[in-house]
């Protein structure tokens, strides 16, 4: 359904992505792991054209495009069929929770207001915020804001939802509520690409784990394979460090 090939992206002299391939089928829950600076977030942002990759191609259903030469029309079409959940939410500060969700429906997709309101309420209900329609972002906790962010992403019925470290800006006690919403989405059959450091989520929910390091995909496979028997030493080292930290954190 979604396939990117040979994605290259540099910031100045710093080459962040050095030819990444990624294939996603409908219903996949792809979790991308890797140390910071490995290019996970950049890859996600390139897929949504928040960054412009210098090289590589993308096939999204019937849309075939080169990253470098994608037209405004193509970019808009891809964005309208994807949802994006940001690390720091990026909710519209001047809009209520409900308006945050309807904005993409009424303005970008020309859905009539009544229908948009109904769909937005349904999305907010799904993330457990039926009592917060008229609250402004500044009145919500981090976890609630991120749930509005997820509602905003799912309300447009995207074919794939991109999650960029959705829980890393949250206080530890608020992480659970956001992960639960994401698990529920996964159960309902959503297609998701998730960049995260939440190993538990990767183990329980992912259909495939992709491990990235220094701008390339080092290995990928079912969570069981990756976590039990990593083939690449870099994966093994990363997992050892993370799991040990988790262990130390828990005592």
């Amino acid at each position: 359904m979604l396939e990117v090939r040979n994605v290259h992206k540099s910031f100045g002299d710093n080459e962040i992505l050095k030819g990444v391939d990624l294939k996603v089928e409908k219903g996949d829950i792809i979790v991308i792991l890797g140390p910071s600076g490995s290019g996970k977030t950049t890859l996600l942002r390139c897929i949504n054209f928040l960054e412009r990759a210098e090289k590589g191609t993308m096939d999204f259903d019937d849309i075939h495009t080169e990253f470098k030469t994608a037209s405004r029309h193509q970019i808009n079409a891809i964005r309208k069929r994807t949802g994006f959940v940001f690390q720091n939410y990026n909710l519209f500060a001047n809009k209520t929770a409900l308006q945050n969700v309807t904005e993409g429906l009424t303005v970008a997709r020309k859905v009539p207001k009544q229908e948009a309101d109904a769909r937005a309420k349904e999305a907010l209900d799904r993330v457990g915020l039926s009592d917060r329609y008229d609250y402004y972002p500044s009145q919500l906790s981090g976890g609630q804001q991120q749930r509005v962010g997820i509602a905003r992403a799912i309300a447009v019925n995207p074919e794939v939802i991109l999650f960029d470290e959705p829980t890393s800006a949250l206080d530890p006690e608020l992480v659970g509520e956001v992960l639960n919403v994401m698990k529920a989405l996964a159960r309902d059959g959503a297609t998701m690409i998730v960049v995260t450091h939440e190993m538990g989520f990767a183990q329980d929910v992912a259909s495939r784990v992709v491990f990235m390091s220094e701008g390339t995909v080092v290995e990928q496979g079912a969570p069981k394979e990756i976590f039990r028997a990593p083939k690449d030493p870099r994966t093994a080292q990363f997992l050892r460090r993370i799991l040990r930290d988790d262990y130390e954190y828990s005592i």
């Binding site: 964005r79 990026n90 970008a108």
Partner: peptide, 13 residues
């Protein structure tokens, strides 16, 4: 800057 990204990601021009 995130406000612009948020808007683009939901499909606004």
């Amino acid at each position: 800057h995130g406000q612009m990204e948020g808007a683009l990601s939901v499909g606004l021009s």
